[in-house]
Design a protein around this nucleic acid. Structure first.
Lengths: 212, 212
DNA sequence: ACCTGAACACCGTTCAAGT
DNA sequence: ACCTGAACACCGTTCAAGT
């Protein structure tokens, strides 16, 4: 994250090229897929040369990494949280709850990751190569926090489905909920049922009414 | 595993090039992804020229179509079956049951489709362009057979998860079942629970024992 | 019928050079 | 610091030509 500072008053026109590349790229990648979108298309939309992109990013994959790393880091933090805690029923429910919040905030990134799994298979955050931060590895780690490798097959299957269900439900029905939180409640209920845990206590959803 | 068939008496050596291309391609596509696998790699493994591939297939996508069409046709037939029948609880359970059988028989194809969704997004069977045979369209149609567009949001979410759960469960735990049918039972139970239907009647699994 | 050799436009990437 | 122009090896595809 080499974000430059304030850009005070006068002109500020073009310090934003990097962000413009990111947003155009995410848009085109989502529309036509990662591999089918060429750097030429991205460059043309921004009225620059292909080579200009290489001033801001060191490769095509690096562009992906740049708008992916926030999501990956958040999931990584969630995994750290879950790993440090006892695998109680309540903690596992909270894990699913928090995961669904992350997913809800990063829908377009998750959509990209899901649809370009093969293209993005060997993609890491930061300079270092952390095997722990592969998309698939993160999924497996989350699943193991719900039902470890020694759990019965049925539990492991259902734990996998629980994790996946959060992602695809949000992806598919993002626009379909009539009330805010309606989808989240359904997703969480379903995921918890699959994981074999009680949903977390209801939060300050129905504000007003009798005090809690 | 480039096992060619019997090679009876005379020569018949090379009528199998087409099948060899298919099998090498599926293998490499699964290993490195569709876009990252070049036709040069495929050709080299078979000791032919890139151009030779174009005698047997009219494009790179056409190779995919060739080993994809059987799976797509089977799902299409299942959809036809489901569409012609009343949406009773039993029929919906049978739909999931049959779908899991198809998936179980075509695991490598499904793995390819799941991991290369973006690359394969506009991919059809046969010459004609049937929008009905897109991977994603088929998924949506299956889901609608479980819970149509007018069903409550919760039912539609869970129907989606039910369909997806069949695929990913088989993909992830193919090797992990100790007894044959164990995984199938778990998958079907989970999917039916999500779809809100009773699992189909147990079939001739536990042979022997008391009759009935 | 089955395959090769050579060419095509396009791709991601690099780099010296400009401001 | 930010970007261009021109070149690189490689890609999918075509096609005339060979057997």
């Amino acid at each position: 994250m080499d974000d430059e500072a304030g850009q005070p008053a006068g002109r500020r026109a073009r310090g934003d090229t990097r962000e413009r590349i990111q947003s155009v790229a995410l848009e085109l990648f989502a529309e036509h897929g990662y591999e089918k979108t060429s750097l030429r298309e991205i460059a043309e939309r921004l009225d620059v040369t292909k080579a200009a992109l290489y001033y801001h990013f060191k490769s095509k994959e690096d562009i992906v990494r740049s708008f992916t790393e926030d999501y990956v880091s958040e999931v990584d933090a969630l995994i750290a949280w879950g790993t440090a805690r006892a695998r109680t029923s309540e903690n596992r429910a909270l894990l699913l709850d928090h995961y669904s919040v992350i997913v809800g905030r990063r829908l377009s990134v998750l959509r990209f990751l899901e649809q370009n799994q093969a293209a993005v298979h060997h993609l890491m955050t930061e300079g270092q190569q952390d095997r722990k931060k592969l998309f698939r590895t993160q999924f497996e780690t989350l699943r193991d926090l719900l039902a470890g490798p020694d759990a019965p097959l049925r539990d492991r299957v259902r734990a996998s489905v629980a994790v996946v269900s959060v992602g695809i439900s949000c992806l598919l029905f993002d626009k379909d909920a009539s009330a805010p939180g309606e989808l989240h409640d359904i997703v969480l209920e379903t995921a918890c049922e699959l994981a074999g845990v009680e949903p977390p206590v209801v939060r300050e959803r129905l504000a007003g009414g009798a005090a809690g």
